[in-house]
Nucleic acid binder design. Structure first.
Lengths: 337, 337
DNA sequence: TGGAAGACTGGAAGCGCTTCCAGATTCAGG
DNA sequence: CCTGAATCTGGAAGCGCTTCCAGTCTTCCA
């Protein structure tokens, strides 16, 4: 391309001809299948080398009915949701696992209806060998589409109101409970939560974890302040919470970005962390480590989530029957609580 | 898939048969090409609907020699480079532009040699209609591979030691100079820089901008402290700088993450920002806004970078001859300087 | 009303590769 | 030196779709 020469790529026929064998033999050499004599094998290899031959993936895909690619779909309200570093980590994990299986990664940011329709077509058209679905909203049309898909589908996290057959999730409930229990163990009693949107399963599960822990300790769960996992929403939620409950001494933020926002509000209001109010986040993103003070948080294996989703998908594609997975979380204690 | 029924997808032949037309006509209807009578058109459409027919993209790709996908390749030392939110934003931009052109996005994290070889194969095998290349290292084998590619290649940023034919870059030099000039205009005279790795073009250009501005103002450019665009490297660099030049009153960090790290070190050392030392970052990432104090920084249009790369690639794919692009940067003044 | 321009139509030839299968070859054992 | 098994080989039939092209059918003008 760079030099502008058309230079039509060579085909398997040309390789076969140059090597003096039939196309079948050449094909077998390329897929190193059996039933090829060493002599011809070498002849073909030499021809491949001389011609700089590279098989055409499309033709191969058509013949084998295997595309050689898996798609990762991120649904959600608007594309900016993808800016959350969470997804980058998922991708790193998924990419590594797919590479092991020699699959390419297609990325679909299906924030618009148009995008979702496009994914729908992908699902029904064998445009990929399998699909990973993430960040579905409540009543997301993708859930139904997934049911009628022609190809394997793995969910990352469980969508609300829909029970997927195959999914990888994180123990949100347990993590949130552990975080809240830790606050309680610190002697805090007026503990509030900044939760994620309650029309998402993460939002609900983490809130339920908080609630369970409070109830179990005989404390009164406070009505949650709802954020959207962004820093600013966390800051706003913290402000609202402080106004409503001036005597607060503990906050469980269902996401590190929101936790960081809460820290900012608290700092601006002159309240000391953790002396006056202890704060715990969730996710263990980079921001937690660099927050001031460093944020105690619930670690979740984000890269692992991506990796396991991909592995499950690969298993499904190769005809196996994996079982859903729930990945463990663990508390990481830093300075904020 | 969900229900486990094999349910072989229907083909164009079946559609044609059901509609009582030839395959050619059916094909024309699907691509809404001319030369189809309204009656047959409707018959085909009805058949498509009844069968729930979706064209097989692979077969179409083979026939048209158009894959319908473009790849975004992120090279670099190790996969964690991708964790930088920078790439997520690039992807959002690129994804949007590709969607307009009805192209899918393939993402290749080519951090290993194996990954790079895979990309090389992609480049020579028409596995995608075009490729966007980013974060190439010095002497990155991908540069040479790109030259011999069978498909259009657009670079994001210019690799060091290689002058790509088509690229989209950001005005790193100008941005860095503006940042440094601003520090100078504030009356700072002992200004240091925390730069990015000098075997990358970004690293070099931003350092050169700093140097130019210092020289132009008759100030002595200090030898740079080199980081790797992470928060911790910025913190470490700042520590080294403080030790070496205790009287420092200004710092230009060539990335916001490093700037945030510098702020942390400064805060821990009890130095006030901006009173004692003014700090400016680069990138205008989310972290700049939530840093304490909020980081003055050089804004670069990251989403725009992705969008323009994709547009340029689409132009190339459709046979046009676009010209390289350098996107402007601008100073965003916050509290740290 | 003849005929040419134009609109439709469907047969057929690919796109480049895999894979089944029947025939050819090789080779060891008898 | 012959036979059956084991191993190779290449012809041919796809994979599902696009598109060229040569006919067929309309139209419309002179």
């Amino acid at each position: 391309m760079a030099q502008g020469v058309p230079h039509r790529p060579s085909t398997l026929d040309e390789v076969a001809e140059l090597a003096g064998v039939s196309r079948s033999v050449a094909s077998r050499v390329l897929n190193n299948a059996p039933h090829v004599s060493p002599a011809k094998r070498e002849a073909v290899e030499r021809a491949v080398h001389r011609l700089g031959y590279v098989p055409n993936p499309t033709a191969r895909a058509l013949a084998t009915r295997q595309v050689g690619a898996a798609a990762l779909v991120v649904s959600g309200e608007d594309p900016s949701i993808f800016a959350d570093p969470f997804f980058a980590q998922v991708i790193v994990g998924a990419s590594a696992a797919l590479e092991e299986a020699e699959l390419h990664l297609m990325l679909c940011l299906a924030a618009s209806d148009r995008g979702r329709r496009r994914v729908g077509r992908l699902l029904r058209s064998k445009g990929a060998d399998g699909v990973m679905l993430m960040a579905l909203r409540e009543d997301d049309p993708l859930a139904r589409m997934a049911e009628e898909a022609e190809i394997p589908v793995v969910f990352g996290g469980r969508p609300v109101g829909f029970d997927p057959r195959w999914y990888v999730d994180v123990d949100n409930l347990g993590g949130a409970r552990a975080a809240t229990e830790y606050l309680i163990s610190l002697g805090r009693t007026r503990i509030a939560t900044i939760c994620g949107r309650l029309d998402t399963e993460v939002g609900r599960a983490r809130h339920r974890g908080y609630r369970d822990a409070m109830l179990a300790a005989g404390l009164e769960p406070l009505p949650p302040e709802v954020g959207d996992f962004t820093e600013s929403s966390g800051a706003a939620a913290m402000a609202a919470l402080s106004a409503r409950y001036p005597e607060l001494d503990g906050v469980f933020a269902a996401g590190d970005n929101m936790g960081a926002g809460a820290l900012r509000t608290l700092r601006d209001a002159g309240r000391r962390v953790p002396a006056d109010v202890a704060v715990i986040g969730f996710d263990d993103l980079a921001v937690a480590r660099i927050a001031d003070p460093p944020l105690t948080t619930v670690h979740q294996p984000i890269e692992g989530l991506g990796r396991e989703m991909a592995r499950m998908l690969v298993a499904l594609i190769s005809g196996q029957a994996p079982t859903p997975l729930i990945l463990p979380t663990r508390l990481v204690i830093r300075a904020s609580a």
